[in-house]
């Protein structure tokens, strides 16, 4: 199956709605928690789930996600396990898009061809490899194209105009605009430059690729602000934190997660 992401953005735009993207680390603290959270996300207004692939050296992540990854790695969760979680998710859910997000080495170890093929076989929609910029990911980009999967790239406040062009050329699905210079869990600062840069990326894109913004969005207020500038918003650290807080009681976790996500969904 081809990526659901383009039609999700289009349908939302037609309804004058922004796309809601949420992140969680696969396997923290267990696969069961992850699956429950993914279904809760889908039922609470989330359109795209970024499922984090745990990696021992997550250089772009702040303390909240680092600790979450550590907890997941205690269960020895592998990239193959992450893919199998998507397969299980698909038994009940055929509409919510799932993007695998992580670092290069586990993918490198599995092999780019095998990895891409297993995305097709398990109905994953796209991939975002944080430490693999366009320069280092031509091979992966070509493989993903073969299967019509979305390859999401990052753009940041330090990205030059000429790079923005290159990034939009190689991206499919959406471009993930990192709102701050920093790691996940950082604070939002310069709103005006976010607005300007998102517009620039859209202008450079020949096929009007959607731009979603992430890093620093924590509540309905910041979500609403960011949604004004963009096609979608991404929330990670706050969700990971909330899930951890209630992880010893799944029912409780489900309730709090649902309330939180619904409030964001209404705000955008």
């Amino acid at each position: 199956m081809t990526s659901r992401i383009p039609s999700i953005f289009k349908d939302n735009a037609d309804k004058d709605k922004k796309t809601f993207i949420s992140y969680l680390v696969c396997g923290d603290p267990s696969e069961k928690h992850t699956l429950l959270a993914m279904h809760t996300m889908a039922e609470s207004g989330v359109d795209i789930i970024e499922l984090g692939i745990p990696f021992s050296d997550p250089i772009a992540d702040g303390p909240i996600i680092q600790k979450s990854i550590d907890r997941a790695l205690k269960n020895d969760i592998s990239l193959r396990d992450v893919i199998s979680v998507v397969k299980k998710f698909r038994k009940k859910n055929k509409s919510t898009a799932v993007v695998l997000m992580g670092y290069m080495n586990p993918v490198h170890k599995m092999g780019i061809k095998l990895f891409s093929k297993s995305l097709k076989e398990n109905d994953v929609d796209g991939v975002l490899i944080v430490d693999s910029p366009p320069e280092e990911s031509l091979a992966l980009n070509n493989e993903l194209k073969k299967y019509n999967k979305s390859h999401i790239y990052l753009a940041s406040p330090t990205t030059t105009d000429s790079r923005m062009k290159d990034i939009t050329k190689m991206s499919s699905g959406y471009v993930y605009y990192v709102t701050v210079k920093g790691i996940t869990g950082s604070k939002l600062t310069d709103l005006n430059s976010i607005n300007i840069n998102v517009k620039k990326i859209k202008n450079y894109s020949k096929n009007n690729i959607p731009v979603a913004v992430g890093f620093g969005i924590k509540d309905s207020k910041s979500a609403r602000q960011m949604a004004k500038f963009s096609d979608g918003i991404i929330i990670g650290s706050s969700i990971v934190e909330l899930m951890h807080k209630y992880s010893n009681n799944k029912k409780n976790m489900e309730k709090h997660l649902s309330n939180y996500l619904s409030s964001i969904s209404r705000a955008i």
């Binding site: 250089i59 772009a60 290069m104 944080v130 430490d131 693999s132 910029p133 320069e135 280092e136 790239y153 990052l154 753009a155 940041s156 406040p157 330090t158 990205t159 030059t160 790079r163 990034i167 990192v178 210079k181 920093g182």
Partner: peptide
């Protein structure tokens, strides 16, 4: 591109590319 044949390169997140 910063490579020694198959080795080396720039495997970093986008924010560090420009610096």
């Amino acid at each position: 591109t910063g490579h020694f044949d198959k080795f080396g390169g720039v495997y970093v997140s986008e924010t560090l590319i420009h610096p």
